[in-house]
Deep mutational scan, measured.
Amino acid sequence: DVEEQIRRLEEVLKKNQPVTWNGTTYTDPNEIKKVIEELRKSM
């Protein structure tokens, strides 16, 4: 579920933690925001 994935990513973003997405680890909050944007567009 895309909305659930977005929620999880936003939680990680709030905690300022790195997130691994599709085999890539993002540590930059701006990169994580881009991933969230892409997910929103795909909905």
Score class of each variant (00 low, 15 high):
D1G: 11
D1K: 10
D1F: 12
D1W: 14
V2A: 08
V2S: 05
V2Q: 06
V2G: 05
E3I: 13
E3D: 06
E3M: 14
E3T: 09
E3Y: 12
E4N: 09
E4G: 10
E4M: 10
E4I: 08
E4A: 11
Q5M: 14
Q5E: 10
Q5H: 08
Q5D: 11
Q5S: 07
Q5L: 14
Q5C: 07
I6M: 03
I6A: 02
R7I: 07
R7N: 08
R7T: 05
R7D: 03
R7G: 04
R7C: 08
R7S: 07
R7E: 07
R7Y: 04
R7H: 08
R7M: 10
R8S: 11
R8K: 15
R8A: 13
L9M: 12
L9I: 10
L9H: 00
E10L: 08
E10R: 04
E10M: 07
E10Q: 06
E10T: 10
E10I: 06
E10V: 06
E10P: 00
E10S: 05
E11Y: 03
E11M: 05
E11A: 07
V12S: 15
V12Q: 15
V12N: 15
L13N: 02
L13Q: 03
L13Y: 06
L13I: 12
K14V: 12
K14F: 09
K14M: 11
K14T: 12
K15W: 09
K15N: 14
K15M: 13
K15T: 15
K15A: 12
N16A: 09
N16H: 09
N16R: 10
Q17C: 11
Q17M: 15
Q17L: 15
Q17S: 08
P18Y: 05
P18F: 04
P18Q: 10
P18H: 07
P18C: 14
V19R: 00
V19L: 13
V19Y: 07
V19W: 15
V19K: 00
T20E: 15
T20A: 07
T20M: 14
W21M: 15
W21V: 15
W21F: 14
W21C: 14
W21H: 15
W21K: 07
W21R: 11
N22F: 14
G23F: 01
G23N: 04
G23M: 00
G23V: 00
T24V: 15
T24D: 09
T24Y: 06
T24Q: 13
T24S: 06
T24P: 00
T24K: 11
T25E: 13
T25L: 13
T25G: 02
T25H: 06
T25S: 04
T25D: 05
T25Q: 04
T25N: 03
T25W: 10
Y26S: 01
Y26H: 03
Y26L: 14
T27C: 03
T27I: 06
T27W: 10
T27Q: 05
T27V: 07
T27S: 09
D28I: 02
D28R: 01
D28M: 02
D28W: 02
P29T: 05
P29L: 07
P29K: 05
P29F: 05
P29Y: 06
P29C: 05
P29M: 13
P29E: 06
P29S: 06
N30D: 14
N30G: 12
N30E: 15
N30T: 11
N30Q: 12
E31Y: 03
E31I: 05
E31D: 12
E31N: 03
I32D: 00
I32G: 01
I32P: 00
I32C: 02
K33R: 13
K33Y: 09
K33D: 04
K33G: 07
K33Q: 13
K33I: 13
K34A: 13
K34N: 06
K34Q: 10
K34E: 06
K34D: 05
K34L: 10
K34M: 11
V35M: 07
V35N: 01
V35I: 15
V35G: 01
V35H: 02
V35W: 03
I36S: 00
I36D: 00
I36P: 00
I36N: 00
E37W: 03
E37R: 05
E37F: 05
E38P: 00
E38C: 12
L39E: 01
L39G: 00
L39R: 00
L39C: 02
L39H: 01
L39T: 01
L39I: 07
R40D: 01
R40W: 06
R40Y: 11
K41M: 13
K41A: 12
K41S: 10
S42V: 09
S42A: 14
S42Q: 13
S42Y: 09
S42C: 11
M43L: 14
M43S: 09
